[in-house]
Design a protein around this nucleic acid. Structure first.
Length: 408
RNA sequence: GUGGGCGUAGCUCAGUUGGUUAGAGCGCCGGUUUGUGGCACCGGAGGUCGAGGGUUCAACCCCCUUCGUCCACCCCA
């Protein structure tokens, strides 16, 4: 009965939706490769325990059962990956790549979270991300530059927010302080009690009011950490990258520390983060690898795609036919054009509409040129090229001349 | 997991206090035009009214259940 429906939060993507998504993926890939990051493809399914150990027991992803679980028939609990970093770090360790050399990786692909869908939030969604692993000087800055370049290339307006969380010790101390501080009130929601640092970006008015009197995370940083943050801010200014310091910015995954950042957009409603990332210095070691520092970010491809409305596909030549027997000649023209220039988008019309309707189609589908072939053209070994966009005279020429013309 | 809105043609949506044959625009197909587009006109196809149950002489409309979708909480990219 309902086996023809898509399942909740996992729509079919077609038309403009997928146009925008694949264009963004292409742009991401170009930028990643341009910074010499190399691709890693890890499986969509991993042991669930991997995420319990990385993303963290206290994160909502694990807490609220936001992972799609499955049984492997041998009693092992598996799950669809809810994010990309854990799998990538796992593969680094699994394949013995966690040596001292600086490594730059990227990934693009679907992620899955069992959440209630809303604007900018699906159960299957697409992320692209980078991980910069090893003792990289100013690695935080490079990663931000990569993110910024993607947004610039896509022409997307956004705001960059940054914060500095310190190391695992200072984070722990701050969490302890908050726990203690918040326990004064009995109006603190459950999720804040479990992970007190979440009180920082809570939208709950009572929590907000309480937090306005609390100490900031800054007061738990030592001199070295404060200087590190100051240095990063100065360098961002030198790079002319605008940012806003947001002392309430925290990330939901337990492994983050040090510099964290988010690119946000006001166009997207409540789910306004389009890129989020930061440092995760302890993660590799805690998963069983070496003690290597690392930083990275993840980018929400679906969210960006909602900000791109205009069609970006270019269509060049529509080749139609007067009658069935002209089709082979039309296909010969088509394959010659494609053979000399694989960038051209060429439609060989295969339907049976009359010439007038064929031209209407060519026009409404946004082609730049149309060619209609029939017996006259075949006999004369010529083609007539019509301008659909401009009001110019038709061009009559041989196929070779046509190839030459379209390659200019 | 919580709260609220919405499910009628491929798309966007009308549909009266429950009443006979469920509509429009866009798109699609055909024609006006048997070899020439953007416009216009004419015609056509396409619906188990999301699904299941109930109330009723009668349900797209009321009730229950369920699924999907949207918005917010929450979470995060």
């Amino acid at each position: 009965m309902n086996d023809l429906k898509t399942i909740r939060g996992m729509p079919d993507l077609y038309g403009k939706d997928i146009e925008a998504i694949s264009m963004i993926e292409k742009t991401c890939k170009e930028v990643f490769l341009g910074f010499n990051y190399s691709e890693v493809r890890t499986p969509l399914i991993e042991y669930k325990s991997l995420f319990e150990r990385s993303v963290g027991e206290s994160s909502e992803i694990i807490q609220q059962k936001e992972v799609f679980e499955l049984d492997d028939r041998k009693g092992e609990m598996l799950c669809l990956r809810p994010e990309g970093t854990a799998g990538l770090v796992r593969s680094l360790i699994t394949n013995g790549l966690d040596d001292e050399e600086i490594k730059k990786f990227f990934y693009i692909g679907p992620m899955f979270r069992y959440e209630r869908p809303q604007k900018g939030r699906k159960r299957q969604f697409f992320q692209a991300g980078v991980e910069l692993i090893g003792n990289a000087i100013y690695g935080d800055l490079e990663v931000i530059q990569v993110a910024k370049m993607i947004l610039d290339k896509l022409g997307i307006e956004s705001n960059l927010e940054i914060n500095f969380l310190g190391d695992n010790e200072s984070l722990e101390a701050y969490n302890k302080y908050l726990d203690d501080y918040l326990s004064r009130s009995n109006e603190v929601p459950e999720y804040v009690k479990k992970n007190p640092i979440r009180a920082l970006d809570s939208k709950d008015e009572k929590v907000k009011k309480l937090m306005s009197e609390a100490k900031s995370i800054e007061s738990f940083l030592n001199e070295k950490q404060k200087n590190k943050f100051l240095d990063i801010k100065n360098k961002l200014n030198e790079l002319k990258i605008n940012f806003r310091e947001n002392k309430n910015l925290v990330r939901g995954l337990d492994y983050y520390n040090g510099l964290v950042f988010e690119f946000t957009s006001s166009e997207l409603g409540a789910q306004n983060a389009i890129i989020g990332g930061g440092r995760y210095d302890g993660l590799i070691e805690s998963l069983g690898g070496r003690n290597l520092p690392a930083t990275g970010f993840a980018l929400g491809i679906d969210r960006l795609s909602e900000m791109i409305k205009t069609s970006i596909l270019r269509k060049d030549v529509f080749i139609g036919c007067v009658d069935e027997s002209s089709v082979p000649y039309a296909q010969k023209i088509g394959s010659q054009l494609r053979g000399t220039n694989s960038e051209l988008v060429i439609e060989n019309y295969l339907g049976s509409a009359n010439v007038s309707k064929q031209l209407k189609k060519a026009n409404s589908q946004g082609f730049k040129f149309a060619i209609i072939v029939g017996q006259e053209e075949i006999k004369a070994e010529k083609v007539k090229l019509k301008y659909l966009e401009d009001d110019k005279e038709d061009i009559e020429c041989t196929i070779d001349e046509l190839v030459e013309f379209l390659n200019d």
